[in-house]
Simulated assay, not measured.
Amino acid sequence: MPETRASAVIPADATAVWRLIRDFNGLPAWQPGVTHSALRDGDAPDRVGGVRTLTLLRGEKISESLVALDDHTRSLTYDIVESPYPVQSYRSTLRVIPLTSTGESVVEWTLTFDCAPAVAEELTGAFRDGVFAPGLRGLTAYFS
């Protein structure tokens, strides 16, 4: 199963960063590749099992389900329900870690998924460099 990760130091304390990230419907505020997010009717932005539909810059739609939300460990895990990507079993986690020496935070974004072996390397790079890295830069800019 392919996996990838990205991380960044964010210039804000873990409480502030977690407050922003834990809003499952708030991705457009800091992820530059997402123009809109809508929760399924009746869902709340912190309800495990909730589904959001994201609209990307080129108009693609991705539906994701909130699998876990843990305020103690400051982690959020979601699965892709439907997307244009040729992946299965897509599971991603965002985690906020206090950087106690400076009062900043480290955000780690991890992913495991399944796909055809011929596209595994390409997709791994695309998610890491085309989704996670710009998102972490956007998160840094949000707090700068």
Rank of each mutant, 00 (worst) to 15 (best):
D129T: 06
G125D: 12
V131R: 00
W30I: 00
F113K: 00
T35I: 02
T112Y: 03
F24S: 06
L111I: 10
T102M: 05
L66V: 01
A44Y: 04
V67Q: 05
H72C: 11
L111R: 01
A141W: 05
L27M: 13
G130C: 05
L56Q: 07
L54K: 00
P45K: 00
D23R: 11
L99I: 12
S65L: 11
A6E: 04
D23T: 05
L27F: 14
A126C: 15
I80T: 07
P134L: 01
R137Y: 06
V119D: 02
A6W: 02
T112K: 13
P32G: 15
K61W: 12
M1T: 15
S105R: 07
R52P: 01
V107C: 14
C115L: 03
P45M: 02
A126I: 12
R40N: 04
P98T: 01
V131H: 08
Y85K: 03
E82D: 14
P86I: 08
R128Y: 11
F24K: 13
V34Q: 07
T102C: 14
T4V: 15
P117Y: 08
L69S: 05
A6G: 03
A6L: 05
D46N: 12
R40M: 04
R47T: 15
T112S: 02
V81R: 01
L39G: 00
C115R: 06
S75T: 12
D43Q: 02
T100V: 13
P45H: 01
R52T: 00
P86L: 05
L136C: 04
G135F: 13
